[in-house]
């Protein structure tokens, strides 16, 4: 994939002219794209299929006010599109415990405590799936901030 076709640079509308410094970190943007693949579309997806992950990613992007990234992820959300809306609690989908956790880790990680993990376990989420969920939310926190930083470098308003 061309450097400027990676999600982070595309979402920030970055070009070779607007941020030439990205060439010095081409490897980092390539690895960032590999990480997106690993958390959004892993071979071993555990309890969270690719379309569900895409919907969660769109939800997290919306929570952060990033409409461009939200649109990018929504394309893969399929039948799970509803949960990409932060107003949806997940009750009707039987995913309230997952969405409550995702929203807290995305927006208020400071106050996440042992009991939040215990609630997931009590709802039957496996240890491996808890780690998978954290990696997804954590990666999005990174990618969203890379994109917003690149926009600021170019003097773009949000």
């Amino acid at each position: 994939m061309n450097l400027f076709e990676t999600t982070a640079l595309r979402a920030a509308s970055a070009t070779s002219d607007s941020i030439p410094a990205v060439w010095a970190r081409e490897n980092i943007f390539a690895m960032t794209q590999d990480a997106e693949q690993a958390v959004l579309r892993p071979r071993d997806f555990g309890a969270f299929p690719h379309s569900f992950r895409a919907a969660l990613a769109a939800r997290i992007a919306r929570l952060a006010g990033d409409g461009v990234l939200a649109e990018h992820y929504l394309e893969g959300a399929g039948d799970h599109e509803k949960i990409a809306d932060p107003a949806v609690t997940g009750e009707a989908q039987g995913k309230r415990h997952v969405l409550t956790f995702v929203d807290k880790v995305a927006q208020d990680p400071r106050h996440v405590a042992a009991e939040d993990i215990e609630k997931l376990k009590a709802a039957g989420v496996s240890d491996a799936d808890i780690v998978r969920l954290c990696e997804l939310v954590a990666f999005l926190a990174y990618q969203i901030r890379v994109v917003s930083g690149l926009r600021l470098m170019q003097g773009q308003a949000r």
Binding site: I19, P20, A21, V22, A24, R25, I28, V105, P109, R110, V112, A114, D116, I117, I130, V131, C134, E135, V137, A138, F139, A141, Y142, Q143, I144, R145, V146, G149, L150, M153
Partner: peptide, 27 residues
């Protein structure tokens, strides 16, 4: 420099990721 600003964006964003693993998954 622009190169330094880019590295700051990357290193600070990276800890948005790392903190959400370390602080969430353990004590």
């Amino acid at each position: 420099s622009e190169e330094e600003i880019l590295d700051l964006i990357l290193s600070s964003a990276l800890f948005g990721w790392a903190n959400r693993l370390m602080h969430v998954l353990g004590d």
